[in-house]
C-alpha cells in the first residue's frame, strides 16, 4: 500500500482491531484452560484410589471441593468486577470468557467432588443449585450468541426512546383525527390511546404476543365498518385506519425489541438469585461437614 509517514504510536497492537467476542477471546484461551482442568480432574479421579469408594469426605474429595468453592467464589466476583470501574489493564471480556469456561468446568469438578453420591440433603441441594446456575448460564450464552444481531436488525438505527416517541407522535395524531368521530367509534380509538401497549404478563413480554392489544382491536373494528365502503380519500375513518396501521407496525417493532431485550436479561433473574441461594447452601454444606467431622 502507499507508504505512511504518519505512523501511529504503538499504543494499540496491530491486529487487535480484528476483534473477538468473549467466546473466542484470545484464541479460546479459557476454553483450553477449562478443558485441561476437566481432563486432569477426570484422569486423577480414575487414577487415585480412594477406599472404599470416591466420596466428598476423602482427601481427594476435599481437594476437589476446595477447588470448587474457590471457583464459585471467584465466579461470583464477576458481578463486582462488572460494576467497579477501577483503573488498570483488565478487560471485562476476558473475565466473561474465563467465567463462562471455568464455570462450565465446575460441572466436572463438582460432580467428581460428590463421588456420584447424591441424596435428599443440604449437600445435594447445593449441588442442584449450582447446576441450576450453570444451566441458566448456558441459556445466557445461547441468547448472547444468537440474539444481538436480531436486536440490531429490528431496531433499524432507532433507539428505544425514539421508538417510544414515534408511538407517542402517532397517538397525538390519532387523538386529533378522532375528534370528528361519533361517540362509539371514538371510544375505540380512545382505548388504543389509553391502554399501556406493553402491559401484560411476563409471558407476553417474552413471547411478544399481546392478545388484548386495543390498537389491534380498534383496527379490526374499523376495518369491519369501512370494509364495504369505497375509499373516497377524505373519510376520517380511513385516516385513522392508516394511523392505526402505522401504530401497529411501530408497536410490533417495539414489542420485538422488548422481547429480545427481555430474553437477553431474563436468565439473569435466575442466574443471580440462584447464585446467592447457592452461596447460602454452600455455607450450610461446609459448616455441616465440619460440624459433623
Amino acid at each position: 500500500m502507499a507508504t505512511q509517514l504518519s505512523g501511529k504510536a504503538p499504543r494499540r497492537a496491530r491486529g487487535e482491531v480484528l476483534h473477538d467476542g468473549f467466546l473466542r477471546h484470545a484464541g479460546f484461551r479459557w476454553l483450553k484452560a477449562a478443558t485441561l482442568i476437566c481432563i486432569l480432574s477426570i484422569a486423577s479421579y480414575m487414577l487415585v484410589d480412594v477406599t472404599p469408594r470416591h466420596n466428598g469426605g476423602s482427601w481427594y474429595g476435599y481437594t476437589m471441593g476446595t477447588i470448587g468453592v474457590l471457583l464459585i467464589l471467584w465466579l461470583t466476583l464477576l458481578g463486582l468486577r462488572k460494576r467497579a470501574m477501577t483503573r488498570g489493564r483488565w478487560s471485562l471480556k476476558a473475565w466473561t470468557s474465563a467465567h463462562v469456561y471455568l464455570g462450565l468446568s465446575l460441572i466436572v469438578i463438582a460432580t467428581l467432588h460428590t463421588g456420584f453420591q447424591l441424596g435428599w440433603n443440604v449437600h445435594t441441594l447445593a449441588y442442584a443449585l449450582m447446576m441450576l446456575v450453570i444451566l441458566s448460564g448456558l441459556f445466557g450464552i445461547t441468547v448472547y450468541a444468537t440474539l444481538p444481531a436480531a436486536l440490531s436488525n429490528n431496531r433499524a438505527e432507532m433507539t428505544q426512546v425514539q421508538m417510544l416517541d414515534a408511538v407517542r407522535a402517532i397517538d397525538r395524531q390519532l387523538h386529533d383525527a378522532a375528534q370528528p368521530l361519533p361517540h362509539d367509534k371514538a371510544a375505540l380509538v380512545r382505548q388504543s390511546l389509553e391502554q399501556d401497549p406493553f402491559g401484560g404478563t411476563l409471558l407476553s413480554r417474552l413471547s411478544g404476543r399481546y392478545p388484548r392489544c386495543a390498537t389491534a382491536k380498534a383496527q379490526a373494528a374499523l376495518r369491519h365498518w369501512t370494509g364495504d365502503q369505497p375509499d373516497t380519500g377524505n373519510d376520517p375513518l380511513e385516516r385513522i385506519d392508516a394511523l392505526l396501521e402505522r401504530k401497529q407496525a411501530m408497536l410490533a417493532r417495539l414489542r420485538r425489541h422488548l422481547r429480545l431485550k427481555a430474553l437477553l436479561e431474563i436468565w439473569l433473574y435466575v442466574h443471580v438469585p440462584a447464585t446467592f441461594a447457592l452461596l447460602a447452601a454452600l455455607t450450610a454444606h461446609i459448616v455441616s461437614v465440619f460440624f459433623y467431622w
Binding site: K8, V17, G21, K82, T96
Partner: peptide, 17 residues
C-alpha cells in the same frame, strides 16, 4: 472497551481498520 462484557466495543484508528 474495558467494560464491555462481550467484546462488542472496540476502538480503532481508521487506517488500521
Amino acid at each position: 472497551v474495558r467494560a464491555c462484557p462481550t467484546g462488542a466495543a472496540i476502538r480503532v484508528a481508521p487506517e488500521d481498520f
